[in-house]
Amino acid sequence: MAAAGRSIKEQAKSGRLVVTVLKYLTLVVGCLVVFIPIVVILLGAFKDGKEFANTGVFELPKSWSFGNFKTAFFEGKVLLGLRNTGIILLVSCAGTILTGTMTAFVIQRFDGYFTRAVKGLFLLATLLPNISMQVTVFRIVSKLGLYNTMWAPIILYVGTDIISIYIFMQFLSQISVSLDESAIMDGASYPRIYFSIILPNLTPAIATVLIIKFVSIYNDFYTPQLYMQNEKLLVVSTVLYKYISSTTIKWEVVFAGIILCIIPTLVIFLSLQKYIYSGLVSGSVKE
């Protein structure tokens, strides 16, 4: 009896061991699938043109020189792309937060036929597929004279971002109305309530929206590609796209450019990891 009991225990133990090994194996394979394509880019970015053409993809570069990075950054216009993306990001984030919180405030706090109708309009707008809408949005943007200016993407990022309004509304519904009411007792006006009660209390929601905005704007390719053909208005995505759409491609420089464009994302990810996970997920669930 005792022996049989032990062998069952041992079996269970070895079974658990197999499961554990399988678990780690799966994770390691998953990570390799993520890493290998990127590592090749990183290695390639350090090789010079001849070396790049003649060595295998996994061969280490002879010397770790940053020449390609320098070329990509200045001549390859990565610097310009980062600058333009930065400006667009800054203005659109500020715009989204201001208009988004204001809209959410009015819709959530002033209940009435009008605000309900407005809410319905915004919800209806979430259905419209963004990219294929550009077929007709394009005409309006160019009629307004916004084509080939930074205002085109900025206005589209601010004006068609309904998810943010939704997140703000969701969050506002959790902020007790009694806060507003006590402020009203003290004689505060509605604008005052918005600026000194609602806005500060929305900080976590604002952080979530900022994260979502950063990811979507930094990575957006189509809006700048369509509306900003001007060389001076290249953003991160279009700089990279320009590399591969030209006839002669210097791959080692392209790779350096890619690495440079990923670094800001990596830094933000590593420093805000926790908020990014929860922010992105909460943003999507309410979609």
């Binding site: 880019i41 990575n219 390719f221 991160v236 995505s237 392209v254 464009c261 990923i262 994302t265 990014i276």
Partner: peptide, 10 residues
């Protein structure tokens, strides 16, 4: 989180 163009080139 990576840029779509970067992913595509990779």
């Amino acid at each position: 989180l990576m840029n779509g163009v970067a992913v595509s080139i990779i």
